[in-house]
Nucleic acid binder design. Structure first.
Lengths: 202, 202
DNA sequence: GTCTATAGGGCGATAGAC
DNA sequence: GTCTATCGCCCTATAGAC
C-alpha cells in the first residue's frame, strides 16, 4: 500500500485533479466492461475505449491486475448504491439478491470469476488480497446474520454460523458458475433448497 | 472433433507410435505441473521441461488451452486409478474425497479453477466443453446417488435430486477455493454440515 | 508423421521526452 | 500527467528438414 497507485484514492500521493482523472478513467473502463463483457480486457483494448494510451492506465493503476480489481469494486459499489441490500434478510436471500444484481452487468460475473481464479496464483497479490478480503468480509456478515437468525428462531441452532456462512458463499458462487455454463441449472431453486435446509425442523 | 489434435487418442489419424509419443509428452507435462504448480504454464515453459519445442506441443495438442484440458483430465484419470472412489458413498462424501485427492497434486486445483474461469469466456471452446461436460456429468452421477439414497431412506425425500446435485458440486468447488485462500475455513466441516442438512429429519 | 526454426501479431510493463 | 518508443514475453501458424 506504499505504492502510489496501490489501492484507494487516499493512498495516492496526488491532489483532487489526479483523483478526478483517475475516477474518470475508472468510469470509462466500467462502461467498457458493461458494454462488451469481460473479454478482450487487455490494457490496450481498455485504453483505446477510454481514449488514452495503455501507459496512462499503468500510471494511474499500477498494473492491469489492479485496474481489474478497481473496476470490479467500483462496479459493485455502484450497484449497491442503485439498489441497496435490504436489512434483515436471510444470508441465502442476500447472496441471491447480489448475484441477481451482478448478473445484469454483462461482464461482471466473468470478471469476478477471473479475479478469483487469479487470486489462487502466488504472483497476483492484488487479486489475492481482493478475493481474501471479500470472502472474509462476506463470511463475517453472513455469520452475524445467522447468529441473529438463530436467536430469532429462524434457523436451526445446531449448526455453526461460520460454517453456514462459508457454505452459503460457496453455494452461491458455484451455482452462478454452473448456471452460466448451463442455464438449465436451477440456481434459484438450489439456493431456495439450501434456505429450506437451514430452517429449524418442525 | 474432426481436427486431428482435438480430443482423445481415438480421434487422431495416427498409429501406435504417434499415440505413444503424445502420451509421453502428456506424462512429462503432468510431472511439470505436479512439480511446480499451475503457474508459469506457457507453452514454452512446458516444452522446455518436456524437452521439445513449443511447436511440437501445438502439433500434438493443437493449442495451449487443449493441452491444459488434457493435462487435467489425464491427471484426474490417474488419481482415480490409484485411489478409486468407493461404491455406495453419499454425494457429499464422494465430492469430499475427490477434492482431498486433488489437493495432493499441487497445481491441480489451480489448473481446475483456471479452466473453469476460462470456460466462461466465449472464445475458449475447449475449456467451455470441458467444464460443461464435467459439471453435467458429475451432476448426473450425484443426482442418481441422491435418488438411490432417497429410496433407501438416507436422504430427505422432499428435495429434488438435481437441485441437490448442483448444490453439492457448487459447495464443494466453492469451499475448495475459500480454503485455498484461507486455510482456516473449515471445508470438511461445512461439507459435513451439508451432509447433515440433507439427512431425513428425525 | 514428427519436429525445428521462424515469423506475425499481441501482450504487460518500463524509460524517458514533453 | 500523458505520451512515444521499446523491451521481453507470449500464443499461434506455417515452411520445410528429417
Amino acid at each position: 500500500m506504499t505504492d502510489p497507485s496501490a489501492a484507494g484514492p487516499r493512498s495516492r500521493g496526488s491532489y483532487a485533479k489526479g483523483l478526478a482523472r483517475r475516477q474518470e478513467i475508472l468510469d470509462a473502463a466500467i462502461d467498457v466492461f458493461a458494454a462488451r463483457g469481460a473479454e478482450r480486457t487487455s490494457l490496450r483494448a481498455i485504453a483505446e475505449q477510454v481514449g488514452v494510451t495503455h501507459a496512462a492506465l499503468i500510471h494511474h493503476f499500477g498494473s492491469l491486475e489492479r485496474l481489474l480489481v478497481e473496476v470490479y469494486l467500483e462496479s459493485a459499489r455502484r450497484l449497491e448504491r442503485e439498489e441497496p441490500t435490504p436489512e434483515g434478510i436471510s444470508p441465502v436471500e442476500s447472496m441471491r439478491r447480489s448475484a441477481q444484481r451482478n448478473r445484469r452487468v454483462p461482464g461482471m460475473v466473468q470478471l469476478y470469476t477471473t479475479l478469483v481464479a487469479a487470486a489462487l496464483e502466488s504472483d497476483r497479490p492484488a487479486a489475492t488480497a481482493f478475493a481474501s478480503e471479500r470472502f472474509a468480509g462476506i463470511r463475517a456478515t453472513l455469520a452475524e446474520q445467522v447468529r441473529e437468525g438463530q436467536a430469532a428462531g429462524r434457523f436451526r441452532t445446531d449448526i455453526g454460523p461460520e460454517q453456514v456462512a462459508a457454505l452459503v458463499v460457496a453455494a452461491s458462487d458455484g451455482l452462478q458458475t454452473q448456471w452460466l455454463l448451463d442455464p438449465s441449472v436451477d440456481q434459484v431453486g438450489a439456493l431456495a433448497l439450501l434456505e429450506t435446509l437451514l430452517a429449524p425442523p418442525r
